[in-house]
């Protein structure tokens, strides 16, 4: 059961990610990204992180990706056209495959054959996570809040139509 769910969503992650990267129409790419993110959320659940899964869907697909959609519609980035000329594409594909293989080899050497026992109730409890986030890691948590505030301010300043700008 668990293996079947994993295989299904792992395949979904990879296929939809390829569509994100290769599809010419930006709207399709973004919609495909939504599928990738939701599938990753399912993998989070399988790994015993239901809270992260919910946050992933809520924040990533519910907010960040909508922002992307907005900007795409606003700037009318229709039809990215041909992505790049031939040689560059081949080199890029080679680099990507090479890097992935490198990672795979590293992971294989270190983690191959390590089994994961089934999850227990205590593994997925929310209370310890809350204690960690608002106790041990209170300072980083607050700093992230500050960072978000700074980002909102910066984004507002950047995207605001400057009235006295000569165009």
């Amino acid at each position: 059961m668990e293996v079947a769910v994993f295989l299904l969503f792992a395949a979904l992650v990879l296929v939809s990610a390829l569509v994100v990267v290769l599809h010419r129409n930006p709207i399709y790419a973004v919609m495909s990204l939504v599928v990738t993110l939701v599938s990753i959320a399912v993998l989070f659940v399988l790994l015993g992180a239901p809270f992260l899964a919910a946050i992933q869907v809520l924040v990533y697909t519910g907010a960040i990706v909508v922002l992307f959609l907005f900007v795409i519609m606003l700037l009318n980035v229709s039809g990215d056209g041909s992505t790049a000329f031939g040689l560059q594409k081949i080199v890029a594909a080679g680099a990507a495959v090479g890097f992935s293989t490198l990672l795979l080899v590293l992971f294989w050497g270190r983690f191959e054959g390590l089994p994961l026992p089934p999850l227990e109730e205590a593994d997925v409890a929310l209370r310890p996570l809350a204690r960690a986030l608002l106790g041990t890691y209170l300072l980083p948590f607050e700093m992230v809040g500050l960072l978000l505030l700074a980002a909102v301010t910066a984004a507002t300043v950047l995207a605001r139509r400057a009235d006295r700008e000569k165009t």
């Binding site: 939504v34 239901p50 869907v57 809520l58 519910g62 909508v66 929310l126």
Partner: peptide, 25 residues
């Protein structure tokens, strides 16, 4: 009866926006 309860509901509800955008586009 998931422990993430309401959070799950809000997350799923937030996916509704995509159908509207798709329809409009």
């Amino acid at each position: 009866g998931a422990e993430t309860g309401v959070l799950l509901l809000l997350a799923l509800a937030s996916l509704g926006v995509y159908s509207l955008v798709m329809a409009g586009y």
